[in-house]
């Protein structure tokens, strides 16, 4: 079953003083139910515009959006959606309990119990401060409350815009666990994040956006290929050694040598050379492309192509 279906979505921001900006250009995307989907792209790629169109906060110029096979303009469908906005601002005079109660009511869930609110606050680690005014909260605490308000009405489709923004490493791990539990409960999650390492860890599928267009979409594993190089750490500075650059495809800096090859034979030959010259090897690692490398490669490639 599909949670989200976007067909040929176009949004152009028009301004009297500036040239029109195409935030989304014939953009299409599908999200299967129960998956964690990562939306990545440089600033101004159209990620937030896309989320705001899905939520009806911004109007598209053309195209179609369906959520759970229902037209997104049907306001009732929002009962099934939870949203954590980027750079959100809570009403500072409320407490977390009041905030969750009000937002639950505004999502048409009027029968929320104190127990449910406490459970949610406990999940995001804010139970101890449940009666404190939000104006005293740190950025990390606000972010945790932001996640709580997105989940309080038990939505099936959750959109998180920069969910770990301002959260410390322990908090980030807790948020990853929450997302993992939500996935296990069958919820569909769309994550928009700049922290590519987080996206890499959490998401099943990833889409890269640039200048309002879908550049690539696929399983996370497809983005994490092994590279063709080995990183070798030695016990002395490479400037002191006359390395065989003509025989091997190498680059070096300090005590690290990068050997570009896919062949293990070539790697062993190079190790033999090092040992023959009495150079001690500290470590050898096969380098991997992470999502960030892939992202930079794809976006740079796009820019150069244009």
């Amino acid at each position: 079953m599909k949670t989200l279906e976007i067909n040929n979505l176009t949004k152009i921001y028009k301004s009297r003083r500036q040239q029109p900006v195409k935030a989304l250009n014939n953009f299409s995307l599908e999200l299967k139910s129960g998956e964690v989907f990562g939306l990545i792209g440089p600033n101004g790629a159209g990620k937030t515009t896309l989320i705001k169109i899905i939520l009806g906060m911004t109007k598209a110029d053309s195209g179609e959006v369906k959520i759970f096979n229902t037209d997104f303009n049907q306001i009732k469908i929002k009962e099934k959606i939870g949203y954590l906005p980027e750079n959100h601002k809570f009403l500072p005079y409320l407490t977390p309990v009041e905030t969750l109660k009000y937002f639950s009511n505004l999502s048409n869930k009027y029968d929320i119990s104190e127990n449910e609110i406490d459970t949610m606050l406990s999940l995001v680690g804010l139970l101890q401060v449940k009666k404190k005014k939000i104006k005293t909260f740190s950025k990390g605490m606000m972010q945790r409350l932001g996640i709580a308000q997105a989940l309080i009405h038990n939505p099936d489709f959750i959109m998180l815009d920069e969910p770990t923004d301002g959260v410390d490493p322990i908090g980030r791990k807790e948020i990853r666990n929450i997302i993992s539990n939500l996935k296990n409960d069958g919820k569909t999650i769309l994550i928009n994040s700049h922290l590519l390492s987080e996206v890499e860890m959490i998401c099943d599928e990833i889409a890269i956006l640039n200048k309002g267009e879908l550049i690539k979409k696929g399983k996370t594993s497809e983005f994490l290929q092994k590279s063709t190089s080995f990183s070798i750490q030695i016990n002395q500075d490479t400037s002191e050694i006359n390395l065989p650059s003509s025989e091997f495809d190498i680059s070096f800096l300090g005590k690290i040598i990068k050997l570009n090859t896919q062949s293990t034979e070539k790697l062993n030959e190079f190790i033999d050379w090092l040992r023959k010259n009495s150079i001690q090897i500290i470590s050898i690692s096969h380098e991997k492309y992470n999502l960030e490398d892939y992202f930079i490669k794809v976006i740079d490639g796009e820019e150069n192509a244009k």
């Binding site: 939520l55 906060m57 009732k76 469908i77 009962e79 949203y83 906005p85 601002k89 009403l91 937002f103």
Partner: peptide, 18 residues
């Protein structure tokens, strides 16, 4: 202006409110 502030209005418009 408080409720329409960027970051606050998102909480309201993302809910089933007209």
């Amino acid at each position: 202006p408080t409720i329409l502030e960027k970051g606050t209005i998102d909480f309201f418009l993302s809910r089933p409110i007209k």
